[in-house]
Design a binder for these strands. Structure first.
Lengths: 248, 248
DNA sequence: TGAATTCACCGTGTATACATTATCTTCGAA
DNA sequence: TTCGAAGATAATGTATACACGGTGAATTCA
């Protein structure tokens, strides 16, 4: 079987990590289910050594849980866990925004964020917003949040935010696609974009408390999206990560 | 060579992790220096497989940094990195305190914290405070912070706080021993203990904002300790972790 | 028939050999 | 003398064999 070009360029460990992550997030492995190394070897096509590495990294990532007697199982999340993870991410992004505001940011460094804002403006102008526009929004939104995090110029904080955002349902764009099917969709996006503008303004004027508060509130939009999507039970297939959620 | 009883009870991976962590924190390996696996094998006495596992875990812990071309090196921290890590930890503990206050805590769950408070009171009553009392304070303080974190009843947040506190200079008791040699020592401890009392009171009265704010301020005591200790340059040997700090 | 014990199999922990890639040193030429 | 290239050395990535422990099933005894 010929390998694809992309597969040859990365290590077996990374390949296994990607394959196993997809497997977990797709829900083909149930929460609580053990992932045996031999099973993972068959799935990924690499040997046990890189598979073990991938499993350890996925545990640190938060997708797997170590079994006391050895090995790993798929982690289970409650709805409360997800809401807390969102609040947590918002708190960290708030701290990043405050750092940026307090420490000052050159207009040159603010430039790419403002470009991001303008591009998003172009997207949300249409009514209704197409599915393609939603996809573009997801990418631009992720870019905005990454740039904002960088503005803190704090490696320890950036690292922690990256880890907190690693879980798909905690990431800034985790529930954007889910909301695309909702009637409130456009309105929510407009509010989110206003948050974006406000935080940039606050940072520019060195208003630390305002920058922090708005990022916290901004994250709570994701929590609202989640609740709306769960209530409407529509297009839940847009949220494969919810396979990890144990309803109870 | 006979192994000690304790060594036989844990896996080689854990043994290697402990040995390598000590090596890094003791400063015998300079920041930026590469840790070769073979070198680590000689030091730890176990084979490459558990050594690799230990290195990966120490990277996730934040003590090592992956080299793009492969392998790991000792991570370097600036003074700013340390201060940011402390502020980060304070922010997370603040969130935990707010969660506890907002969600409510039974008086039964508050009991162990209050016991902690009373025991610390017994320590700080003496003047001056003995070195042994400082050691006891370190243990009790760690216990208090752990209990407080648990009160949030939020596994994702607890996990993140544990990771943020893993770095020795970011942990709640990171700079307590360093301050023991300072003339301001007792006063700082009294203030810290007052913070402890205030946060318990705030949680009891379900004052979320107050609980959050006091924990943030509480963490800044550690930052003050660090600055004092660095300025006085006295008893820096009490802070082996500072070997990781690159002065610049 | 039920419970306990033993045996077998499955799974992880560990060690090591092999392959590949990066890095350093040395030699040569401009 | 300095820059570059090539080879040697060393380090990591990977595969696999072996050892140990745990779990489950089957069998035997009460």
């Amino acid at each position: 079987m010929a390998e694809r070009e992309a597969d040859r360029s990365v290590s077996h460990t990374v390949r296994a990590q990607l394959a196993l992550r997809d497997l977990v997030l797709s829900g083909r492995l149930r929460p609580g289910e053990r992932i045996s190394e031999l099973q993972a070897v068959e799935i990924t096509g690499v040997s046990r050594t890189p598979v073990r590495m991938a499993l350890v990294r996925l545990e640190e990532e938060g997708l797997l849980e170590a079994i006391p007697s050895g090995g790993f199982m798929v982690k289970a999340f409650s709805e409360r866990d997800i809401l807390d993870s969102i609040e947590l991410r918002g708190t960290l992004e708030g701290l990043a925004a405050r750092f940026a505001a307090e420490r000052g940011v050159s207009s040159r460094d603010l430039e790419p964020l403002k470009e991001c804002l303008n591009e998003i403006d172009g997207l949300v102008r249409q009514d209704p917003i197409s599915v393609e526009a939603f996809s573009s929004y997801v990418a631009l939104n992720a870019r905005f949040h990454a740039l904002l995090t960088e503005l803190s110029r704090s490696p320890p904080l950036i690292r922690q935010i990256d880890r907190a955002s690693a879980l798909p349902f905690a990431s800034p764009s985790g529930f954007v696609m889910a909301q695309s099917a909702l009637p409130e969709a456009r309105q929510i996006l407009l509010i989110a974009q206003d948050h974006h503008r406000v935080v940039v303004d606050a940072i520019e004027n060195r208003e630390g408390a305002r920058a922090e508060a708005i990022m916290r509130e901004h994250a709570r939009l994701a929590a609202r999206n989640l609740r709306l999507a769960l209530r409407n039970r529509t297009h839940l297939d847009l949220l494969p990560a919810l396979a990890l959620v144990t309803t109870g």
